[in-house]
Design a protein around this nucleic acid. Structure first.
Lengths: 163, 163
DNA sequence: TGGAAAGATTTCAGGCTGAAACGATTCATA
DNA sequence: TATGAATCGTTTCAGCCTGAAATCTTTCCA
């Protein structure tokens, strides 16, 4: 598909490049798939966190996934307009908007989780279970070593991709 | 750093999430580092490809890394303004602008490569060589299985991150 | 009580991106 | 050889997302 001398003579991929390449690819694929549930990745992540412990404040959740408050507002606005999440006043602290799932929100979340599971399978299709576990362990090791927050996902955008 | 019940009770990360998380992280780190060479990842990639075979047309290179022509023009403009790359007319085809490195371009490329090597090491610091190779093989397997182009990096931006 | 701090929100401006339209040139084919 | 299709490079344009900063309210602390 490409003239010889283009892809053929590329230096063997480095680990850094492969990680970046596969990671970004996985992100984009997931974004495509999750849209079938009427969501996008950030919304799905917030929805999941709300479900993990309902009644938390917006900023508690925002801090957990390291997104700026101004962004959080827009995300919750979005979720609320779709009727997936509810903002309720917190009687203990009137500054706070406590977040709760609606029935519709639970449905969307369930749908999203199914899609995520399918995504997981497709991504590792053709891999032996042992390899799967090995890959998972190795990646987790990097997360720990690099001091990336567990469960904290740096969004796409900003700057650009790697090598 | 986070109140209990936030990160502590998160479901064990999936492979898809880890891949995306680590990949995006690696991308962003690299973007930071490569700026020390006065470059950004896309520029570095184009610079590398020009070096791999000087005299190719803009679109030949653009096609190799799957970026739209309109974007390529801006990238080459950028590289040319920095004096790293030269556009020369192609005597065989007057539509074509053949690309060549300048002396300065070679210097920048060398600098970028050093940074990339350091990045590679930092990313895998604390990993046994055997694990490194295993990880590389596993990732390469995914690239092949998922029909991602070898050496083709989907840029950041667009849609959003995963799970 | 008064000032600092925190939660939520709005505003705003910058950056990046790709589709589309365009002129110049080359190619294919009749 | 003539003519329409395709290619290369370029410019234009409009959408999108993002985070910093300012604002307002409410709470905390000294």
């Amino acid at each position: 598909m490409n003239p010889p001398g283009l892809n053929g003579d590329q230096a063997p991929s480095t680990l850094a490049f492969l990680l970046s390449q596969v990671g970004v690819h996985a992100s984009k694929r997931f974004a495509e798939k999750i849209s079938a549930a009427g969501l996008n990745p950030p919304l799905f992540r917030v929805l999941s966190l709300v479900a993990a412990a309902e009644g938390r404040s917006q900023q508690a959740i925002a801090a957990a996934i390291e997104i700026p408050p101004s962004r959080m507002v827009a995300l919750v606005d979005d979720l609320e307009q779709r009727g997936l999440v509810e903002r309720r006043p917190d009687p203990r602290d009137r500054r706070v908007r406590a977040l709760f799932l609606t029935a519709e929100g639970r449905k969307s979340l369930a749908k999203g989780r199914k899609i995520a599971a399918r995504h997981e399978e497709e991504l590792t299709r053709g891999m032996a279970p042992a390899d799967r576990k090995r890959l998972l362990d190795l990646l987790q090791k990097i997360v720990d070593e690099q001091a990336i927050g567990r469960g904290v996902h740096p969004g796409l955008s900003e700057k650009a991709p790697a090598e």
